[in-house]
Write a protein that binds this DNA or RNA. Structure first.
Lengths: 332, 332
DNA sequence: TTTTGCTAAGAAAACGTTTTCCAGAAAACG
DNA sequence: CGTTTTCTGGAAAACGTTTTCTTAGCAAAA
């Protein structure tokens, strides 16, 4: 590191004490306009930028935040959602003067709570944005509940003094998109490809589906597709023959289903969920739910910042949109 | 931050001086096995983890590295390459005890060299992995050449004492894949969709294409597709009618070309470049060049670490593979 | 005039490490 | 047995900030 100019140099240049420079830097109240100006002039002249590391050590505030992403997700390289989370989080963090450290589940999978705590603490991490935690990620859940860090959970419940939750209304969204999908149709026998067993969003979406089924008197066969394209493909091969339509808890599964239908050479309408642009490449039109993942991640960072400033946790529901996705939506 | 236990506590527990603990921590030579054991016992007992921030301040070594990604890239949400870079870099960094800060071009676009330098320095960043810098990114290039940081350029030239370059042999790869694509065929009139004007890899690939054209006596019409699907689509619409085949400098453009051909309802064989799995979703078979982006990014971090330890820059050529991509390659 | 209250600015300790330098003991040497 | 060398461990300064405490100065109140 080339530390060219320090607060010390600024102080000398401006003819004031180090502490005074620091006060100007941190917008302390008790400093005269005159001194402020002198200091700012010196800062500009010397091209001083505060050393965030020293500042972090002294103030015990790092502004560092970890974005924790599911490992399973990027196993499927076509899954664009994690990247959207990253972009949204990083941009907002920049705006807020925070630093995002991206961490994958796999990196911390073998750790227990104490180890995780120490790992994050030694890195100076003060808050966590956790994406898609499931009921089975016990250690991570314990970490969140330990209240050692402020955290925001994307797509998982868990509001407390130190924890907020941010998500769309999955139940409602699944209900609505399926309803629209079925509107004016006479499909009764539905194959529903659910997400993960013990996944929060999966259960909510399933609830939405069930509610609609009750309302419309549908016969719904539920199978767990694990959010996997391949799994959806298999299940479609197995069950689609005797069904009227297929409703999926994710677009990736919808693609798997569509590909299977093509291979089987039968037609069944398919309904998706997520609104990923990959869908456009399957070359089909389809009803789905559009989530703005970048915006969700940005809101999560914003919320985390609020928590870190002393706010207490809350449940945030972001709006979704029902769309009909098609090729031209994507490339234009 | 909850600093539970410091080196001071360890020292007290082990009955040695602070400096001794530090020496054990950093594997200094002059410490007896007996003392080492005492210290390690104390560390284990207290669950001590060194505070990386204090360590960074004191040693003036942060181990922080910025991964700089092209802004244009993620405008196309289906582009999976940046995510592959991120995964590869982060995993290797973890292994090496380094920290990756992901930075997008857009964030630093409006800065001049001095500002960029200060920005990175204030963040304690010691090295850069820069992806896809082009000839027009003058400031970033100046930053690299300023030698204030060690850097590794992915897909761009620029070897010096402080800078390494890592890339496949684009010229050769383009030559080979096109040759294989044309093998046994009689296509003579080729539409070549090149990448960016002033892009390093684009020029290299074009050279490879030209070499083959000379060799085989092909008539090649070169148009700049800017690595954009939409642009490739337009160019295909415009020129494909009078050509025998289309060779593209990226898979994304190949997809654009294919979609256009479908819309035009004519058949022309298409050749791609990159081997992205998205290709599988276009539902076609195609010749292309497979690059392992995760591995490339991992090697880049490894190389950066070598530079930071005093090694000097070098040019690293990683191998590529010629493949024929198809749906099942992707989902299974 | 003396006291009180207030503001602005400086002095200095602290944050948790690393690293240089030094002292003492033990070992090697003549 | 005295001298030098080697080895181990400790003391203390340093890294660049923040923050608490103190003081000087001055105006208002008594």
């Amino acid at each position: 590191m080339y530390e060219l100019v320090s607060i010390r140099d600024v102080a000398k240049q401006a003819g004031v004490a180090i502490s005074t420079v620091s006060k100007v830097l941190n917008h302390y109240p008790n400093v005269s306009d005159e001194t402020k100006e002198k200091v700012n002039a010196a800062i500009a002249e010397l091209g001083f930028v505060p050393n965030t590391i020293a500042s972090a050590l002294s103030s015990k505030k790092t502004g560092r935040v970890a974005l924790v992403l599911d490992a399973n997700r990027h196993a499927q390289t076509v899954d664009e959602i994690p990247m959207q989370y990253i972009i949204g989080a990083i941009n907002k963090a920049k705006e807020k003067g925070m630093d995002i450290i991206t961490v994958f589940f796999t990196m911390i999978a073998e750790m227990n709570v104490e180890e995780m705590t120490r790992y994050f603490q030694s890195q100076g991490i003060e808050g966590l944005v956790i994406c898609d935690i499931s009921k089975e990620d016990i250690t991570l859940r314990q970490l969140v509940e330990s209240s050692k860090f402020k955290s925001v959970l994307i797509d998982a419940p868990g509001v407390s003094e130190n924890t907020s939750s941010i998500h769309i209304d999955n139940t409602k969204a699944q209900y609505e998109v399926a309803k629209k999908f079925l509107e004016g149709k006479t499909y009764k026998k539905i194959l529903y490809l659910s997400g993960k067993k013990n996944g929060y969003v999966s259960e909510e979406r399933l609830n939405g589906m069930n509610r609609l089924a009750d309302e419309l008197g549908l016969k719904v066969l539920v199978r767990t597709g694990n959010f996997s394209e391949l799994e959806a493909r298999k299940l479609t091969m197995q069950y689609a023959g005797s069904k009227d339509a297929i409703i999926c808890a994710s677009d990736l599964m919808a693609i798997g289903a569509m590909k299977a239908l093509i291979d089987m050479d039968i037609y069944r309408p398919v309904c998706g969920f997520d609104g990923v642009s990959l869908m456009g490449y399957a070359g089909k039109q389809m009803h789905t739910v559009r989530q703005d993942f970048q915006k969700i991640a940005a809101s999560a960072v914003e919320e985390l910042s609020r928590l870190m400033e002393g706010g207490s946790g809350q449940d945030i529901v972001v709006p979704h949109k029902l769309i009909r996705i098609k090729y031209l939506d994507v490339i234009s």
